[in-house]
Lab assay of single mutants.
Amino acid sequence: TKVFYNGTYVEFNNPEKAKKYAEKVAKKVGGTFTEKNGQFHVE
């Protein structure tokens, strides 16, 4: 499961961990995250 952010991504074996990371990054940058095709995108 990949989490895309700012033109790069971090890959996780565990979708649950990926979601938590996406939430954390989104919170940090004051943005939101969306799930597309089983991957997370932070905006």
Rank of each mutant, 00 (worst) to 15 (best):
T1H: 14
T1I: 14
T1M: 07
K2I: 08
K2Q: 06
K2A: 06
K2E: 02
K2W: 08
K2F: 10
K2N: 04
K2V: 08
V3S: 00
V3G: 01
V3E: 00
V3W: 00
F4Q: 03
F4K: 02
F4T: 04
Y5V: 08
Y5F: 13
Y5D: 02
Y5A: 04
Y5L: 07
Y5N: 03
Y5M: 07
Y5T: 04
Y5I: 09
N6V: 04
N6Q: 11
N6P: 01
G7W: 05
G7A: 05
G7H: 07
G7P: 00
G7K: 05
G7M: 05
G7D: 07
G7S: 06
G7T: 04
T8P: 01
T8N: 11
T8E: 09
T8D: 08
T8M: 12
T8V: 11
Y9R: 03
Y9P: 03
Y9C: 08
Y9M: 10
Y9K: 04
Y9F: 12
Y9A: 08
Y9W: 13
Y9S: 08
V10E: 06
V10N: 04
V10P: 00
V10K: 13
V10I: 13
V10L: 10
V10H: 07
V10A: 07
V10D: 03
E11W: 14
E11F: 10
E11S: 13
E11V: 14
E11R: 08
E11M: 12
E11T: 14
F12T: 01
F12W: 04
F12R: 01
F12V: 02
F12L: 04
F12D: 01
N13M: 12
N13V: 12
N13Q: 14
N13T: 13
N13H: 11
N14Y: 05
N14C: 10
N14M: 06
N14F: 05
N14P: 01
N14T: 14
N14W: 05
N14D: 15
P15C: 12
P15M: 13
P15I: 13
P15E: 08
P15H: 15
P15W: 15
P15A: 13
P15Y: 15
E16G: 09
E16H: 11
E16M: 11
E16S: 10
K17Y: 11
K17D: 15
K17W: 11
K17M: 15
K17P: 05
K17S: 15
K17T: 14
A18F: 01
A18M: 00
A18Y: 00
A18D: 01
A18W: 01
K19D: 02
K19N: 04
K19F: 08
K19T: 03
K19Y: 10
K19Q: 09
K19W: 07
K19H: 07
K19S: 06
K19V: 06
K20T: 10
K20I: 12
K20N: 11
K20R: 13
K20S: 11
K20Y: 08
Y21V: 03
Y21T: 02
Y21P: 01
Y21A: 03
Y21I: 03
Y21Q: 02
A22F: 02
A22V: 03
A22M: 02
A22R: 00
E23T: 07
E23H: 08
E23V: 08
E23Y: 07
E23W: 07
E23M: 12
K24L: 15
K24D: 14
K24C: 15
K24T: 13
K24W: 15
K24Y: 15
V25M: 14
V25C: 11
V25A: 06
V25R: 04
V25Q: 07
V25E: 05
A26M: 03
A26G: 03
A26D: 02
A26L: 03
A26I: 04
K27V: 09
K27M: 12
K27Q: 13
K27G: 08
K27P: 00
K27D: 08
K27E: 12
K27W: 08
K27F: 09
K28C: 15
K28S: 13
K28N: 10
K28M: 15
K28V: 11
K28R: 13
V29I: 14
V29M: 10
V29T: 10
V29G: 05
V29F: 11
G30M: 06
G30C: 13
G30Q: 08
G30H: 10
G30E: 05
G31I: 04
G31T: 07
G31M: 06
G31C: 07
G31F: 04
G31V: 05
T32N: 08
T32K: 11
T32R: 10
T32F: 14
T32P: 02
F33L: 14
F33N: 04
F33P: 04
F33W: 14
F33Y: 14
F33K: 03
F33C: 14
F33T: 07
T34A: 08
T34C: 13
T34D: 05
T34S: 12
T34W: 13
T34E: 07
T34V: 14
E35A: 06
E35K: 07
E35P: 03
E35D: 05
E35F: 13
E35T: 07
E35L: 09
E35C: 12
E35Y: 13
E35M: 10
E35I: 12
K36S: 09
K36Y: 10
K36E: 08
K36A: 08
K36R: 14
K36Q: 10
K36N: 08
K36V: 14
N37D: 14
N37V: 04
N37G: 09
N37E: 11
N37P: 03
N37I: 04
G38E: 04
G38I: 00
G38D: 05
G38W: 03
G38R: 04
G38Y: 04
G38L: 04
G38C: 05
Q39M: 11
Q39A: 14
Q39D: 15
F40M: 05
F40E: 01
H41Y: 15
H41R: 06
H41W: 15
H41T: 08
H41L: 09
H41A: 05
H41Q: 06
H41V: 12
V42F: 04
V42P: 00
V42G: 00
V42I: 14
V42N: 01
V42C: 03
V42Q: 01
E43A: 10
E43F: 15
E43L: 14
E43P: 03
E43T: 14
